[in-house]
Each structure stands twice: as structure tokens, then as C-alpha cells.
Amino acid sequence: MSATGLVIAVDGTSGSGKSSTCRGVAERLGLRYLDTGAQYRAMTWWMLQHGVDVDDAAAVAAASARPDIVSGTDPRDPTIVVDGRDVSVQIRSDEVNRAVSPVSAVPAVRERLVALQRDVVGDGGIVVEGRDIGSVVCPDAHVKVFLTADPSARAERRAAEEGGSDIASTQESLLHRDRIDSGRAVAPLVQSDGAVEIDSTHRSLHDVIDLVVGLADQSPSTASER
């Protein structure tokens, strides 16, 4: 297998730096990039736009097959398109932030999006980020990473991304989502078997990218290429 056939699975908590890390790793290695969280956000955005009660699991399940969701995989400019419309900005709204966990917990939603994610992964050559990649979506990934950081550091990063949001409320929001995602019955947030935990609290983005690239270099699938 060539290095371009690699599958790198990166799971972890909100605000731990998954997106920046994965995009950096993909650029460094010349791989594609998939943000599975954006797909769940896109599904959530569609539900809100179509008046579906996101707290009604049956209603969400019944509508989950309707939206057409397409993920761009260029790490320099990832896109998420719903029914032909790029919603990369809209899916980051506060309204979507509040609704994404209950939508993501619906088994029918996860079944549909996991199938979509596996189609995108295909024969590999991709860095995939999410919360159940190493455990459910790509359990045979060549490299598995579980990225974490202290809640305060995560809150500071997320608040900065959101233009100076209140750090205390941001931290509580992140912890609330972690509790929901870790406790859900289907595909909870867990560190998968074989995943290497990386704590990004006191590491620069460059250092974290270096660590993940180092793991990829050590993978038997790339070692044979050297």
C-alpha cells in the first residue's frame, strides 16, 4: 500500500484542535480531509430549516434520508453542501450548536451519515476527524489518534474562534456536549482500541501535527514505501 492509501482517524473532544490538526496533517501528507462533524451539523441545519423538531427523535429519523449532503475533501478549502447550497458558514451558528447533539444521537442519522462517510473514505488517502471514527466509521484505520485538552484551554480556543465569546459559558457548553456525546447509546465518544492519546493543552498546533505525521510515518503501510 502506498502512503496515499492511508486512513488516519482522529477523534476527540470539542475544542481540542481536531480540525486544525487534521487539515494540517492532510496538507503535509498530500491527503484528502473529511470533517464528519460538519456532516452532522449540516443535517442539523437542514432539520432546523425545514421545521423538524430536533428533540423529537422519531421526526428526525423520518426526515434523515431527505437532505443531499456532499463533503468537499480539500484540506485547504473544505466545503459542505446541502441540496446544492454551500452551508459552511451557516452550520457554525449558535442555533446549530445547540441542536447538533440531539440530532447526532438519533440512530437513523448516524446510520445514514456513517455510510456516507465510508463512501468518502473509499480506498483511503484521507484524514478523517470526528467522535466515532476509530471506533465505528474506520475501525481498521492505519493510524488512530484521540485528541484531548484541558477544558479551560479548549474553551479559550473555541471562544477565540467565535470572536471573543464568554470563556466560562463556552466551557460549560463544551462540557455539556461532551456529556451528551459520551453518554449516548449509539456510537458514543470514546477512545478507540489502538488509538494514541495526544494532549494538546501545552502543545502548539505545529507540534501536534508533527506528532500525528510521525505516527503516520511509523505505520507499516508507509514504512514499506521508505
Rank of each mutant, 00 (worst) to 15 (best):
M1K: 10
M1C: 12
S2E: 13
S2W: 12
L6S: 05
V7Q: 03
V7I: 14
A9E: 06
V10F: 06
G17C: 10
E27P: 00
R28G: 00
L29Q: 00
L29T: 04
G30V: 09
L31V: 08
R32F: 10
R32E: 01
D35A: 00
T36L: 00
G37F: 08
M43V: 07
T44V: 10
W46S: 01
M47H: 01
L48T: 07
L48F: 09
Q49A: 11
G51N: 02
V60P: 05
A61C: 13
A63K: 11
A63E: 13
A63W: 07
S64Y: 14
S64G: 03
I69W: 04
V70F: 11
G72C: 11
P75H: 04
D77R: 15
T79G: 04
T79S: 14
V81N: 01
V82S: 04
R85Y: 11
D86Q: 05
S88F: 13
I91A: 01
V96S: 02
V100G: 00
S101T: 14
A108Q: 14
A115Y: 00
L116N: 03
L116C: 06
G125W: 06
V127D: 02
E129T: 08
G130E: 06
D132Q: 07
I133F: 09
G134K: 01
G134L: 11
S135Y: 03
V136N: 00
P139K: 08
D140L: 12
H142D: 15
H142Q: 14
V143R: 08
F146H: 13
L147P: 07
A149F: 10
A149D: 05
A149Q: 08
A153V: 15
A155S: 09
R158M: 10
A159F: 12
A159K: 10
E161G: 05
G163L: 04
S169V: 15
S169K: 14
L175F: 02
R177D: 00
D178A: 08
I180S: 11
I180R: 12
G183I: 05
L189N: 01
Q191I: 13
D193H: 13
A195S: 14
V196G: 02
I198N: 07
D199H: 04
S200R: 00
S200M: 01
R203S: 07
V212W: 06
G214A: 15
L215I: 00
L215C: 00
A216T: 03
S219R: 02
S219A: 15
S219L: 09
T222V: 15
T222F: 09
A223V: 15
